[in-house]
Design a protein around this nucleic acid. Structure first.
Length: 416
RNA sequence: CGGGGUGUGGUGUAACGGCUAACAUUCCUGUUUUGGGAACAGGCGACUCCGGGUUCGAAUCCCGGCACCCCGACCA
């Protein structure tokens, strides 16, 4: 993509009302736009990152047998009444609305109940189980206090997977697979080294639920990490009994602030009982389906990556989620330099490399460098009189200081 | 939802109750320039969040509303 055609532009200063690092950098670099408190739009660069994150999650969900669907965000009152969750006292973040005929509707806070209702149409027998169904769909939560940029929004995308199993044993088997898939997601997204499987309160069907917590000062949770075992305990269940139960040693646990980037937990038969999701066993008995739920917010994940991977100049995207792989800069308007850059751009695009080409004329070299650092694309390639005199193109990684000069062929090979 | 704070060109800031609301940046025109947000010249852009009030006079003081930020509570 040509930067001269990109409608967004970078800013030197962040809006005064944005304090969080993720919002500050993402707005300055033109990835997101703030609509109102807790509501942000994704712009071209931001959407590319968002989509890459979504794709990583999608691949990992598919790998453990997930089937993707897309449920509505409009939900009937009757969907939530069986579990008593329509009540504002039970769920205090509802956005509610009405049809023209005054029928009450809610904007999806989550999808446990509607997913259960949907799958009920397809599950009658033990032969129909298990089923693992997921979606990327908008959640609306009327938070009393939105904050921290895109980390806690009133409208946000969530990947929510629901598992429907015959019984607790097969549920637990899948649960372990889901753990593994989540680990891979955060590893691939570039924050695996800072993300810990964390024990948290479990609800009625399990002693614990599991959160994936990424160490960051921007986090809202406090966790106690065992660095050797790579697991942690959320403050909400942190006590001597739990420490002993998990076989941990209190003296080795380190307190940290962390962002909850994912969570998985056992629902048991809470929803299947309430909504009458049952199946017939081989013996002809009727049994409740055993459920679990598994969430990741791609937007929050994107914000977390920025919080954790940046320096004083800007963002440092991991290659896996970067909006482009290469930021190609042409310096000066000298015809031979420009045409050299143009043909390199074409060669890279033809080789299938994702390139943002800073082809803007009459923009100083300093500004191009500053923009490049701010946007944070992993590889920067400079074409200038100097680089050509040195015998080619100058390549530098965003997170490294020194650059090296490469020829066109080497470069295409190196990046392709 | 409790507490605290802030609203001034697109963005960041300034302005004692008193002159035509200032400066920087962005943007536009032109000249020059091209290795770390370059230089010069000219220009566009603001009913100072909204509504009342006090005053000869309000961006400034008072009241109400709205919006935004921070701390806490909440967070399937």
């Amino acid at each position: 993509m040509r930067q001269s055609k990109l409608f967004t532009k970078t800013r030197k200063e962040a809006p005064a009302d944005e304090v969080s690092r993720n919002a500050e950098l993402l707005i300055r670099a033109g990835f997101i736009n703030k609509e109102m408190a807790g509501v942000y739009s994704y712009l071209p660069l931001g959407l590319r990152v968002f989509d890459k994150i979504v794709n990583i999650i999608r691949e990992e969900m598919n790998a453990i047998g997930g089937q993707e669907v897309h449920l509505s965000s409009l939900q009937e009152k009757s969907t939530w009444e069986p579990t008593d969750q329509w009540d504002d006292k039970q769920v205090d973040v509802w956005f509610k609305t009405k049809l023209k005929n005054d029928t009450e509707l809610g904007l999806a806070v989550t999808h446990e109940a509607s997913m259960t209702k949907m799958i009920k149409n397809f599950i009658q027998s033990y032969r129909d189980l298990p089923s693992y169904v997921y979606q990327f769909q908008t959640k609306f939560r009327n938070e009393t206090r939105a904050k921290s940029g895109i980390m806690r929004m009133r409208e946000f995308m969530m990947k929510d997977l629901y598992s429907f199993d015959l019984d607790e044993a097969s549920h637990l088997e899948f649960y372990e697979r889901a753990k593994g898939a989540y680990k891979k997601v955060f590893q691939r997204a570039g924050i695996g080294h800072l993300t810990y499987l964390t024990f948290a309160s479990g609800g009625m069907f399990a002693p614990f639920s599991h959160e994936f917590q990424t160490i960051s000062g921007a986090g809202e949770d406090t966790i106690y990490v065992d660095p050797n075992k790579g697991i942690a305990i959320n403050k909400e269940v942190y006590n001597d009994e739990v420490i002993a139960q998990l076989g941990l040693d209190k003296s080795t646990l380190v307190e940290n602030r962390a962002v909850e980037v994912g969570n998985i937990f056992t629902l048991g038969t809470r929803f299947s009982d309430a909504l009458d999701l049952k199946y017939q066993t081989a013996e002809g008995e009727s049994k409740s389906v055993f459920m679990g739920s598994y969430g990741i917010g791609p937007g929050r994940l994107m914000g977390t990556i920025v919080e954790v991977l940046s320096d004083d100049k800007g963002i440092i995207w991991p290659e896996t989620v970067a909006p482009f792989k290469v930021h190609l800069l042409v310096l000066g308007e000298d015809i031979s330099v420009v045409s050299e850059a143009e043909s390199l751009y074409k060669a890279l695009v033809d080789a299938g490399v994702e390139v943002l080409f800073d082809d803007r004329a009459s923009v100083g070299a300093g500004e191009k460098f500053a923009d490049s650092d701010l946007i944070g694309i992993p590889y920067r390639v400079v074409v200038s009189k100097r680089s050509m005199a040195d015998g080619g193109y100058e390549v530098k990684k965003r997170n490294e200081e020194k650059s090296k000069v490469m020829s066109a062929d080497d470069l295409t090979k190196f990046l392709g």
